[in-house]
Design a protein around this nucleic acid. Sequence first.
DNA 1: CATGAATGAGCATTCATTCAT
DNA 2: TATGAATGAATGCTCATTCAT
Lengths: 194, 194, 194, 194
Amino acid sequence: MKQKRPKYLQIIDAAVIVIAENGYHHAQVSKIAKQAGVADGTIYLYFKNKEDILISLFQEKMGVFIEKIQQEIAGKDTAAEKLYMLIEKHFSLLAEDHHLAVVTQLELRQSNKELRLRINEILKGYLNILDSIIQTGKDTSEFSEDLDARLARQMIFGTIDETVTTWVMNDLKFDLPALAGNVHKLLINGCGRV
Amino acid sequence: MKQKRPKYLQIIDAAVIVIAENGYHHAQVSKIAKQAGVADGTIYLYFKNKEDILISLFQEKMGVFIEKIQQEIAGKDTAAEKLYMLIEKHFSLLAEDHHLAVVTQLELRQSNKELRLRINEILKGYLNILDSIIQTGKDTSEFSEDLDARLARQMIFGTIDETVTTWVMNDLKFDLPALAGNVHKLLINGCGRV
Amino acid sequence: MKQKRPKYLQIIDAAVIVIAENGYHHAQVSKIAKQAGVADGTIYLYFKNKEDILISLFQEKMGVFIEKIQQEIAGKDTAAEKLYMLIEKHFSLLAEDHHLAVVTQLELRQSNKELRLRINEILKGYLNILDSIIQTGKDTSEFSEDLDARLARQMIFGTIDETVTTWVMNDLKFDLPALAGNVHKLLINGCGRV
Amino acid sequence: MKQKRPKYLQIIDAAVIVIAENGYHHAQVSKIAKQAGVADGTIYLYFKNKEDILISLFQEKMGVFIEKIQQEIAGKDTAAEKLYMLIEKHFSLLAEDHHLAVVTQLELRQSNKELRLRINEILKGYLNILDSIIQTGKDTSEFSEDLDARLARQMIFGTIDETVTTWVMNDLKFDLPALAGNVHKLLINGCGRV
DNA sequence: CATGAATGAGCATTCATTCAT
DNA sequence: TATGAATGAATGCTCATTCAT
C-alpha cells in the first residue's frame, strides 16, 4: 500500500503547508516537491497527478479526523452528548492545525467541480456520523420522529462549516472551540421537539 | 432603468451563461464576448478586467436578489413569517435560474481569496437582512433573548447555503422550493425558546 | 494645404508633448487626441495614420530647425564661422525645447526601420547644410582639399548627435550650449589641414 | 569555456538571427525558440524574460567585441596606432557579422528607455577603452593636453557609430573596413595639436 | 468637419507532466 | 527508486483604425 511509504505522507504534509502558505492557485507541484525535499519527478512515483495529491491529502486528513471524532462519541449515550463531542472535537482539531483549517475551508474549495465531487465522496464518512447521531436522537426520543434526517444533517453540517469558514476568513483570530456550546444549543433546539 | 447601459448587462448575462456551461476556469473572455455578441475589446469598455466582470456579476445579481427578498418580507410582522418568505424566495429565485445557481454555488467559489473577500463584502447585504429578522424575533419574543445573533445568522445562512449546494451538486434534480417549509421549521426551532 | 489648418499643428504639438512625457511606446493616438483637445477620429482627418503623425512632426519641426540654422549661417563667410553658428544654434534650439529634444534624440529612434528611413530622408536637408559648409571650407582652403566629404559630414553629425544624446540621457542636466566652443574646435581640427 | 551552457549561447545566437531578419518588434519568443531548436518554455530556464534575452545578447556579444579590440590595441604604443586598430577592428568585426551589425545599429535601438540605459551601462566598457586611448595620446603628447576627454570620446564614438549606421542603412553595400583609414585620419586631426 | 463607441488581431509567460539517465 | 531538464498548450488585454451619426 502506497500509504505505508514514508514519502507518501511526506509529500502530503508538504502539500498542506505549501497550499496554506501560497494559496491553491500558487501551489505548484515543484513547490510541493521542494518543500517535501524530493525531486519534481518523484511526486509522480507516488501520485497519479496533481489532483491525486489533493484527493489523497483530503482522504488522509479526513480519515484521521473522522477516526478521532468517532472515538470521542463512542462512549456517549445521548444524541445531545454525541453532537456536543462532535462539534467540540471538530472545532478543536482545526484550531490545533491552522494550516489544515485554511486548506480545507478556503483553498481546496477553489478546485473544479469534478474534484469537489470527489471530495464530497470522502465527506460522506463524516456525514454518516451525523446520520447515526440523528438516528440515535430519534431512538432516544430526543429528536422529533418526523425530523427530516437529510435536512437536519445539512443544518448541522452547514452551521458547523459556516462557523469554521467565518473563523478562517477572520484570520483565525477568535476562539473557535469556545463557540462549541452555543452552536450545540442552537442545533439541538433545531432538531428537538417543539 | 438600466436601458442606458444595455451592453453592460448583456455582458454580465453572457458571463453567467458561459461560466455555468464551461466552468469558472474555462470561461475565457473571448467566450463571454462571443456569447454577448460583442468584440473582445468591447468587454474592456465596460469592465476593468476579467475579475471586474465577476465582481460586477455578483453585485448586479445579488442586488436584485436582495431587493426581491426585502419586498417579500416587508409586509410580514413576525420573524417566523419573514424567515419563511426569505427561505422560500431564496430557493425559488435560484430554482428559476439554474445558470445563476450553478455560478453562485459552485463556480464563483473557485475564485481566489481576494475575490472571495470582495464577494463576502457584497454578501453583507444579505446577512443584514438575516440580522434584522433575528432582531425582530427577539423583539417579538419569538426567539430567546440571549440567542447569539452571530451564530444564529451563521446557522441560518449555513443551512440554506448547504441545502442549495447539495441541490446543485445533485444536478438540480430535486424540488428545492418544496424544502422551504421543513428548513424553516428546523431553523425556527433552533432559534426558538426551549 | 493641410499645414495651414490650425488643428494640424495643434495635433503635432500635442504629439510632441505626449511622446516626451509618456515615451514612444505609450503615446497612444487617444492620448494625443485628448492632449490636442479633439476626438480620436479627428486625428484621421488630418493624418493618414499614426506613423504619418510622427513623420509630419519630424518634418514640421525639422523644417523650422533648418530654416533657423540657415538664417544664422547665411551671413558668415568662413566654414569655421558657419560651423560654429550651426553647432551653437543646434544646441541652443534643443536646449530651449526639452520636449522636442527628448522626442528627437530618444523616442523617435524607437520607431521601426521603415520610419527611420523616412526620417533620414527628412534629415537630408540638415546634411545638405553640412555639405555646403564642408564645400565652403574646401573653397576657402580652410579644409584639406582631399577631405572625404561624406566622412566629414558623418563626423560632424555623429559628434553633435552623440553629444546631444548624452545630454538627454543625463536628464538634460548640464549646459549643452556651453559645449559648442569645444565641440567646434574638435571638429575644425578634424577637418582641417594637418 | 562556455560549453557548460550550450543552450544559453544557442538561444542568444538564435535571437540575433531572428531579430535581424524580422525586426525588433516582430521577434517573438516563439520564433527565437524555434530558431534555437528548443521549446518556448526552455527559453525561460535560461532567461528571466524577453528583455533579459536582449540584455544578455548585447552583453555577450559586446564582451567578445571588447575583448578582441583590447587584444588588438594592447601591443601598440601610440594613441594613433591604438585608435587605428580600434576603428579597423570595430569595422571588420561588424562587417564579418551582418546580423549582429543590423541588430546593434538598428533593432536594439528600438527598445524602450530602460533597456537603452542598461545597454549604455554595457557600452561603458567600450567607452573606457576610448578614454584610455585618449589618455595615452595626452601622455605621448600626440593629443593636446587641454583636450576635453569627454567630448573627444563622444566625437570618436559618434563618428564611428554614425559611419556604421550609415553603412547598415545602405543595406551593408559599401566596404566598411575600407573607410577605417580615412575615419582615423579625421579623428586624429580632431584630437591632435593644431 | 467632428465625434467616440466598437472592433479584433497579436503575444509573453506559466507549469503539470515526461523521460533519458 | 530518484532525478530535473525539457516540453508546449493555453489566454487576458491593448490600441490603431473605422464608420454611423
